[in-house]
Design a protein around this nucleic acid. Structure first.
Lengths: 261, 261
DNA sequence: TTATTCGTTTCAAATAATGAAATAGAATAT
DNA sequence: ATATTCTATTTCATTATTTGAAACGAATAA
């Protein structure tokens, strides 16, 4: 009685189609969508038209390809400015960025995944995966683990159950048990590492952002490459990061996290 | 014949509700939405539930308030990275930002308005769609006028008809005729000014980004305050901006603008 | 207590979405 | 030029979701 969603709901269907288009990460044609969706062609066609005229999809008449539309960007701006930590944390992150010349991320949990909501590049930016708005796995990123470690048990359970545990690298913690023991250590030491668990050559330290009642609102991380530094070195940033996290938490005290159900 | 929308379509309705929530720019309760929407309470209630469980809206159980949800941020990231000029223009904007220590914007036309898709602040280098995503009026911003001036006549007409011509400041060109003559001059000189037409104390220069076939794909601007500089000074940036715009256009030559219908 | 306000549920009626199959249109092959 | 093979689009009777007035319940105020 719990698992799959009932097929009902026009809005659900439309969202599903949007997700499909998003997953392609490139413009797609009707037939490509047909082949990966449960809906018949006629239905999909009409749905795509609707999404297109509403501006949720962009359409190229010459190639007959659909992509996500800019109306989403407009809508997301409102969501981001109201409901992400980014506006609240901005000044604090700026400060941290001035004293640490590495890539800094601000992330939140969203739908059991990590959502990067802000980012500062080092002066010499490293070309890597991740930008604000990007999502990543919770179980094998620094920010993800930092947040998971401080979640109340019930919430943690439900999130862990939804992880894919894909082994991105040889070092990925690709099982729930491995992850759980890592989380325990993170909780006791107060910060998390990512030791090339998501991308080879990329390491980071992350600290959670906790309110006075110890609920997790986000995390910040400092990222670097193994070519240039070590985890041990990154560790020296932790005190400054924790101070920043505390300051953000204080500013966010009266801000209500969308993750709280 | 042109104005109001037919009431049909579940997706349309859902989007309308999202827009209403977005327009409040703060969390809102059911009854507030009821008072500004054409739908009865029961209908709205169910719609909000749907949007909420889909993650398009966030909900605070204690205050019963809805806000835009972070799923939009996730979706928008795909839209932004595929369909905005930003990823293509990034390196070029970075370069420009290094030689000009002022705020730089990259904008596109979207639904007859200006959509800022990237931004560089004088000091901190950030690239993300989040502070981008903001929309502004086309008729009284530098980037807006720069783009309008180079639009084909038919397209321009339809866009001009949709402007609100609100006089934000005393200097705002608040009529179609005033705007049209300004556009003519912009077209002949190749760049546009914003002389405090949108915000008092804020001035900017903007140049259009034109493909080899002279179609408008976007615009870049350099913004400053009257307290610190003058339009005459800003003008000196124009050659560099035009060079950058040309380079972006070259990179974007094979990129298809969503605005082309 | 009694009003009042707001959120939630109900259920028959109204309406929008469905999908199999036919049609139109484009591109490629013969 | 004509046939062939894709793909996109339309049709229409059927199906199922959405609708909305009104009733209900919960919470707060008077």
């Amino acid at each position: 009685m719990a698992a799959t969603s009932t097929s009902s709901g026009t809005v659900q269907k439309a969202l599903h189609v949007l997700d499909i288009v998003a997953d392609f990460k490139r413009p797609v044609r009707l037939n490509e969508i047909v082949s990966v969706s449960p809906y018949p062609k006629g239905t999909l066609y009409r749905m795509l038209q609707t999404l297109r005229t509403e501006g949720l999809l962009a359409y190229d008449e010459y190639s007959n390809e659909y992509s996500l539309g800019m109306r989403l960007v407009r809508l997301a701006h409102s969501a981001w400015s109201q409901f992400s930590l980014a506006p609240i944390a901005r000044a604090h992150i700026d400060g941290l960025s001035e004293s640490i010349d590495e890539t800094i991320h601000l992330a939140q949990l969203e739908a059991s995944q990590v959502l990067y909501v802000d980012k500062r590049n080092a002066k010499r930016p490293v070309q890597m995966y991740s930008q604000a708005g990007k999502i990543g796995p919770a179980y094998c990123t620094g920010v993800g683990k930092a947040m998971l470690a401080f979640l109340p048990e019930a919430h943690l359970e439900s999130i862990l159950a939804q992880q894919s545990y894909h082994a991105f690298t040889q070092k990925t913690l690709d099982s729930k048990t491995a992850l759980l023991s890592a989380l325990e250590q993170i909780k006791s030491q107060g910060f998390a590492f990512d030791d090339e668990e998501h991308e080879p050559g990329i390491i980071c330290v992350a600290t959670p952002i906790l309110t006075s009642s110890n609920s997790v609102v986000g995390a910040i991380s400092v990222t670097a490459t193994t070519a240039r530094t070590t985890l041990e070195n990154l560790k020296s940033y932790v005190p400054k990061m924790q101070e920043t996290a505390n300051n953000i938490a204080q500013s966010a005290e009266h801000w209500r996290s969308p993750a709280e159900h």
